[in-house]
Simulated assay, not measured.
Amino acid sequence: MAGVVVDDHGRALLIQRRDNCHWEAPGGVLEQGEDIITGLRREVLEETGLEVTPIALTGVYKNMPRAIVALVFRCEAEAGALRESDETAAFRWVTATEVADLADEAFAIRVQDALASRQTVPIRQHDGVHILG
Protein backbone atom coordinates (compact mmCIF):
# COMPACT_ATOMS: atom_id res chain seq x y z
CA MET A 1 0.00 0.00 0.00
CA ALA A 2 1.07 3.58 -0.51
CA GLY A 3 0.07 6.98 0.81
CA VAL A 4 0.18 9.83 -1.67
CA VAL A 5 0.53 12.81 0.67
CA VAL A 6 -0.82 15.92 -1.06
CA ASP A 7 0.08 19.46 0.02
CA ASP A 8 -1.94 22.70 -0.23
CA HIS A 9 -0.48 23.32 -3.70
CA GLY A 10 -1.73 19.99 -5.12
CA ARG A 11 1.74 18.42 -5.15
CA ALA A 12 2.54 14.88 -4.02
CA LEU A 13 5.34 13.89 -1.67
CA LEU A 14 7.84 11.41 -3.08
CA ILE A 15 10.55 9.65 -1.13
CA GLN A 16 13.84 8.46 -2.54
CA ARG A 17 14.42 4.94 -1.26
CA ARG A 18 17.85 4.17 0.20
CA ASP A 19 17.93 0.58 -1.10
CA ASN A 20 17.47 1.33 -4.81
CA CYS A 21 17.45 5.18 -5.09
CA HIS A 22 14.01 5.06 -6.77
CA TRP A 23 11.44 7.80 -6.22
CA GLU A 24 8.08 6.54 -4.93
CA ALA A 25 5.18 7.46 -2.70
CA PRO A 26 5.78 6.32 0.88
CA GLY A 27 4.29 2.96 1.81
CA GLY A 28 4.93 -0.68 2.45
CA VAL A 29 3.30 -3.87 3.65
CA LEU A 30 1.00 -4.68 6.54
CA GLU A 31 2.26 -6.38 9.63
CA GLN A 32 0.44 -9.51 10.75
CA GLY A 33 -2.89 -8.59 12.36
CA GLU A 34 -2.66 -4.92 11.30
CA ASP A 35 -5.59 -3.22 9.60
CA ILE A 36 -5.04 -1.32 6.35
CA ILE A 37 -5.41 2.23 7.68
CA THR A 38 -3.19 1.61 10.72
CA GLY A 39 -0.54 0.03 8.49
CA LEU A 40 -0.70 2.89 6.00
CA ARG A 41 -0.27 5.50 8.74
CA ARG A 42 2.60 3.53 10.31
CA GLU A 43 4.46 3.12 7.01
CA VAL A 44 4.12 6.79 6.04
CA LEU A 45 5.24 7.89 9.51
CA GLU A 46 8.26 5.54 9.47
CA GLU A 47 9.38 6.73 6.03
CA THR A 48 8.61 10.45 6.30
CA GLY A 49 8.08 11.57 9.89
CA LEU A 50 4.57 12.75 8.96
CA GLU A 51 1.34 11.70 10.63
CA VAL A 52 -1.29 11.45 7.91
CA THR A 53 -5.01 11.04 7.48
CA PRO A 54 -6.06 8.97 4.47
CA ILE A 55 -8.79 10.80 2.56
CA ALA A 56 -9.69 8.36 -0.20
CA LEU A 57 -8.69 5.12 -1.87
CA THR A 58 -7.56 6.26 -5.31
CA GLY A 59 -6.47 3.01 -6.90
CA VAL A 60 -5.90 -0.72 -6.66
CA TYR A 61 -2.94 -2.03 -8.67
CA LYS A 62 -1.57 -5.52 -9.26
CA ASN A 63 2.07 -6.33 -9.88
CA MET A 64 1.58 -9.36 -12.12
CA PRO A 65 5.09 -10.89 -11.93
CA ARG A 66 5.18 -10.68 -8.12
CA ALA A 67 1.43 -11.30 -7.50
CA ILE A 68 1.20 -8.23 -5.26
CA VAL A 69 -1.92 -6.10 -4.91
CA ALA A 70 -1.24 -2.49 -3.89
CA LEU A 71 -3.83 -0.10 -2.49
CA VAL A 72 -3.07 3.60 -2.96
CA PHE A 73 -4.62 6.31 -0.80
CA ARG A 74 -4.60 10.09 -1.11
CA CYS A 75 -3.55 11.48 2.29
CA GLU A 76 -3.24 14.78 4.10
CA ALA A 77 -0.41 15.51 6.54
CA GLU A 78 -1.74 16.34 10.01
CA ALA A 79 1.44 16.60 12.10
CA GLY A 80 5.15 15.92 12.13
CA ALA A 81 8.10 17.07 10.05
CA LEU A 82 9.95 15.44 7.17
CA ARG A 83 12.95 13.44 8.31
CA GLU A 84 15.22 10.91 6.66
CA SER A 85 15.14 7.32 7.90
CA ASP A 86 16.85 3.98 7.32
CA GLU A 87 14.55 3.59 4.30
CA THR A 88 14.41 7.18 3.02
CA ALA A 89 17.31 9.19 1.61
CA ALA A 90 15.48 12.30 0.32
CA PHE A 91 12.10 13.93 -0.28
CA ARG A 92 10.58 15.92 -3.10
CA TRP A 93 7.18 17.58 -3.59
CA VAL A 94 6.14 17.06 -7.22
CA THR A 95 3.34 17.82 -9.64
CA ALA A 96 1.64 15.13 -11.73
CA THR A 97 3.90 16.07 -14.65
CA GLU A 98 7.12 16.05 -12.61
CA VAL A 99 6.45 12.60 -11.13
CA ALA A 100 6.66 11.07 -14.62
CA ASP A 101 10.25 12.31 -14.93
CA LEU A 102 11.34 10.94 -11.53
CA ALA A 103 9.49 7.70 -10.85
CA ASP A 104 9.21 4.41 -12.71
CA GLU A 105 6.04 4.34 -14.82
CA ALA A 106 4.16 1.92 -12.53
CA PHE A 107 4.73 4.18 -9.51
CA ALA A 108 4.23 7.44 -11.41
CA ILE A 109 0.78 6.32 -12.57
CA ARG A 110 -0.27 5.61 -8.99
CA VAL A 111 0.73 9.11 -7.90
CA GLN A 112 -0.87 10.73 -10.96
CA ASP A 113 -4.12 8.85 -10.30
CA ALA A 114 -4.10 10.04 -6.69
CA LEU A 115 -3.58 13.65 -7.81
CA ALA A 116 -6.23 13.50 -10.55
CA SER A 117 -9.68 14.86 -9.87
CA ARG A 118 -11.72 11.75 -10.53
CA GLN A 119 -14.09 9.53 -8.60
CA THR A 120 -12.47 8.05 -5.49
CA VAL A 121 -13.63 5.74 -2.73
CA PRO A 122 -13.99 7.74 0.50
CA ILE A 123 -12.94 6.36 3.87
CA ARG A 124 -15.50 6.49 6.66
CA GLN A 125 -15.34 5.34 10.23
CA HIS A 126 -18.21 3.56 11.98
CA ASP A 127 -17.98 2.18 15.51
CA GLY A 128 -14.19 2.40 15.35
CA VAL A 129 -13.97 0.48 12.07
CA HIS A 130 -12.68 2.08 8.85
CA ILE A 131 -15.02 1.50 5.92
CA LEU A 132 -14.16 2.11 2.27
CA GLY A 133 -17.07 3.53 0.29
Rank of each mutant, 00 (worst) to 15 (best):
Gly128Trp: 10
Ala81Met: 11
Ser117Val: 11
Leu57Ala: 04
Leu82Val: 11
Arg17Ala: 14
His126Leu: 13
Asp35Glu: 15
Arg11Leu: 08
Ala70Asp: 13
Asp19Cys: 08
Pro65Asn: 07
Thr120Tyr: 08
Ile109Phe: 07
Ala116Glu: 13
Leu82His: 08
Gly27Ile: 05
Glu76Asp: 14
Gly128Leu: 10
Arg92Gln: 15
Leu57Gln: 04
Asp35Phe: 04
Arg83Val: 12
Leu30Ile: 02
Lys62Arg: 14
Tyr61Ile: 02
Ala12His: 09
Glu105Phe: 10
Arg66Thr: 10
Ser85Val: 09
Val29Pro: 00
Ala100Tyr: 07
Val121Gln: 08
Gln112Val: 13
Arg11Gln: 14
Gly133Met: 04
Ala79Asn: 15
Val121Ile: 15
Val69Trp: 12
Glu43Phe: 02
Ile36Asn: 03
Leu71Ser: 09
Glu46Lys: 12
Glu51Pro: 00
Glu78Trp: 05
Ala25Cys: 05
Gly59His: 00
Thr95Gln: 09
Glu98Ser: 07
Glu24His: 12
Asp86Thr: 08
Ile68Tyr: 10
Arg110Asn: 03
Thr53Val: 13
Ile15Lys: 08
Val44Asp: 03
Arg83Gln: 15
Val72Asp: 01
Gly33Thr: 01
Glu78Thr: 15
Asp127Leu: 13
Arg41Lys: 15
Asp86Ile: 02
Val111Ser: 04
Thr58Ser: 15
Ile37His: 01
His22Arg: 14
Trp23Ile: 05
Asn63Trp: 11
Glu34Leu: 01
Glu47Phe: 04
Ile109Asn: 08
Leu82Phe: 09
Arg124Phe: 13
Trp23Leu: 05
Ile15Ala: 05
Thr120Gln: 12
Gly3Leu: 09
Glu31Gly: 00
Leu45Ile: 05
Thr58Leu: 01
Asp104Glu: 14
Ala96Asp: 14
His126Thr: 11
Gly80Glu: 13
Glu78Asn: 14
Glu105Lys: 12
Thr58Lys: 03
Arg11Ser: 06
Glu87His: 12
Ile123Glu: 02
Ala90Tyr: 03
Arg110Lys: 15
Gly28Leu: 01
Gln119Tyr: 09
Glu46Cys: 06
Ala2Trp: 02
Gln32Ser: 14
Phe91Trp: 06
His130Val: 10
Thr88Met: 08
Glu105Cys: 01
Asp19Pro: 00
Ala56Tyr: 07
Arg41Met: 14
Ser85Tyr: 11
Ala89Thr: 02
Asp113Gly: 04
Glu47Ser: 07
Thr88Leu: 10
Asp35Val: 02
Cys75Pro: 00
Glu84Gly: 11
Ser85Ala: 13
Asp101Thr: 12
Ala2Pro: 01
Ala106Val: 11
Val94Pro: 06
Gln112Lys: 13
Ala81Leu: 12
Glu47Val: 08
Glu76Asn: 12
Ala89Asp: 13
Ala70Asn: 12
Arg124Met: 09
Met64Trp: 05
Gly10Thr: 09
Asp113Trp: 04
Lys62Ile: 10
Glu98Lys: 06
Gly128Val: 10
Arg42Phe: 02
Ala25His: 00
Asp101Val: 03
Trp93Asn: 10
Ile109Trp: 06
Pro54Lys: 06
Ala114Ser: 15
Arg17Gln: 14
Leu13Met: 06
Glu76Leu: 14
Glu43Cys: 11
Val72His: 01
Ala108Ile: 01
Val72Cys: 04
Glu87Ile: 02
Gln16Leu: 04
Ala106Leu: 07
